[in-house]
Simulated scan of single mutants.
Amino acid sequence: MIARYKAWFAARPEFADPPERQVGESDDDLAQRIEESCGPKAAGAFTREQSVLTFSPEWMQSLMENRDGGSEILNCVFYAASLSSLPIGLFGNERISE
C-alpha cells in the first residue's frame, strides 16, 4: 500500500508531497497540514467526533455533490494521512449518540 500511495503522488505533481509528522506534532496540526498540502478543496476534510479524528461528513457530502475532481481530493487526503501515520477513525452511516 505504501508504495502504491507514493506512486500515486509521484504521478500527480499538482499535489504537494504529503507532510511528514514532526516530533511532538499533534494529530490536529498534522491533519491541517495534510489539508493544506492537498489544496483548497481539501479544507475542512477532518473533524473530531467523540474525540476521534475522522473525515467530516459535510466535507464528504460536498465532494459527492461537486464531482469536480472530488475523488482525487479524497485520495490525496486519505493517502497523505496514511503515509503520515495520522490515525483516522472511520464511522459508518450511523451517528454516535451523545
Rank of each mutant, 00 (worst) to 15 (best):
M60Y: 13
M60P: 00
Y5E: 05
R12D: 01
E25D: 06
E49C: 00
R33Q: 07
T54E: 09
L63W: 05
A10W: 07
Y5H: 02
E35K: 07
E25K: 01
R4F: 13
M1H: 13
F46A: 03
P13V: 02
A43P: 00
G44E: 12
D28Q: 14
R48E: 12
E20M: 02
M1N: 08
K41F: 13
D68K: 09
Q50G: 09
G44Y: 13
S37E: 05
A42E: 09
P19T: 10
G39F: 03
S56G: 10
S51A: 14
G69H: 10
W59Y: 09
D27F: 07
D17G: 03
M60K: 08
S26G: 05
R33D: 05
L30V: 07
L30D: 08
F46Y: 14
A42L: 05
A3V: 13
T47P: 01
E35L: 02
S62D: 10
P18W: 08
I2P: 02
M1Y: 14
E20W: 05
E35N: 12
G39N: 03
C38E: 07
Y5S: 00
G44N: 12
A10E: 15
E36T: 15
Q22T: 05
S51M: 13
E20P: 01
D17L: 08
R12W: 06
L30W: 11
R21F: 06
M60H: 10
A31H: 10
A42Q: 04
K6M: 10
M64K: 12
K41P: 00
A42W: 11
A11G: 04
K6R: 15
T47D: 01
A10I: 02
Q50K: 14
P40D: 12
T47G: 00
V52R: 12
S62P: 01
R4P: 00
G39H: 01
L63T: 04
E14T: 06
A10R: 12
E20L: 09
F9N: 04
Q22C: 00
I2A: 03
M64P: 03
P18R: 00
E35H: 09
M64I: 14
Y5D: 03
G44R: 11
Q61K: 15
V23M: 11
D27Q: 11
P13C: 03
C38H: 04
I34N: 04
V52L: 09
K6T: 14
M60N: 03
P19D: 07
I34A: 02
S37R: 04
L30K: 08
P57W: 14
R33H: 12
A31M: 08
R33A: 03
R48D: 05
A45I: 08
K41R: 15
C38I: 01
G44M: 10
A43F: 12
S37K: 00
F9Q: 02
D28E: 15
W8S: 04
V52S: 09
K6I: 14
D28V: 14
E49W: 04
E58Q: 09
R67D: 11
N66S: 15
F9S: 05
A31R: 08
A3M: 06
C38S: 02
I2E: 10
E14L: 07
A10Q: 14
Q22F: 11
F46C: 04
F9T: 08
R4I: 09
S62Y: 06
Q61C: 08
E49S: 06
P13L: 08
P19C: 06
T47A: 00
E20Q: 13
G69N: 05
T54I: 04
P40Y: 13
P13R: 11
G39D: 05
A42H: 04
E35T: 08
F15M: 02
